[in-house]
Structures are given as C-alpha cells and as structure tokens.
Measured scan of single mutants.
Amino acid sequence: YETDHQDYCEVCQQGGEIILCDTCPRAYHMVCLDPDMEKAPEGKWSCPHCEKE
C-alpha cells in the first residue's frame, strides 16, 4: 500500500530502516534521533519536530 511518508531519514537523508512519525510525513533512523533510540517505539510515536509543536 502507498503511504505519504518520506522514504528517507529527515536527519541524514538516507534510506534504510526508518521509523515513521504518526503525526507528520517525516521518517527517521533510530540512531539519528537525539537521544537515539535503542528499539522501535510501540504504539503511536511523534517525531521531535511534532513533540515541539
């Protein structure tokens, strides 16, 4: 199925295993987040940009 999420990391602009924000189209590698994540979040997750809003 098609999503509106970007298929690359917002921080480093590379693809790969990325996690998707449930609020906006941004996507991130877990290691590119500050602080980085050990494992993928369970349930709904909002990226740092959305958390600030």
Rank of each mutant, 00 (worst) to 15 (best):
C24Q: 00
V31Q: 09
I19W: 06
E2I: 14
C47H: 02
V11T: 14
T23G: 06
Y28E: 02
V31E: 09
W45Y: 06
E2F: 15
L20V: 11
K52E: 14
K44W: 13
P41I: 12
H29D: 04
K44H: 04
E2V: 14
C32W: 00
G15H: 01
A40H: 15
D7T: 13
D22M: 02
H5L: 15
Q6V: 04
K52D: 03
C24M: 01
C21K: 01
Q13S: 11
H5D: 01
C24A: 00
H49Y: 07
D7N: 06
S46C: 12
C50M: 01
C47Q: 01
A40F: 12
V31R: 10
P35G: 12
R26H: 05
G15W: 06
C21G: 01
T23F: 09
P41L: 09
K39M: 13
I19M: 15
E2R: 15
A40S: 08
Q6G: 03
I18R: 10
Y8M: 11
C50T: 02
M37G: 06
T23V: 05
Q13E: 10
P25A: 05
G15S: 11
E17A: 07
E42T: 13
P35K: 03
P41D: 12
Y28I: 04
I18M: 12
T3P: 06
A40V: 09
H29S: 02
H5V: 15
Y8N: 08
D36R: 10
C47L: 01
E53F: 10
L33Y: 11
Q13V: 11
R26S: 08
I18T: 15
C24G: 01
A40I: 15
P35H: 11
I18A: 08
E2M: 15
P25R: 10
C21V: 00
Q6F: 02
P35T: 12
D7G: 11
S46Q: 12
E53Q: 04
D36Y: 02
C50A: 05
E42A: 07
C12W: 00
K39C: 03
E42M: 09
P48M: 13
E2L: 15
M30W: 08
Y28C: 02
E2T: 15
Y1N: 10
E38T: 01
K52S: 14
C50N: 04
Q6L: 05
I19H: 15
T3S: 14
E51R: 05
G15R: 13
K52L: 09
Q13G: 12
H5S: 15
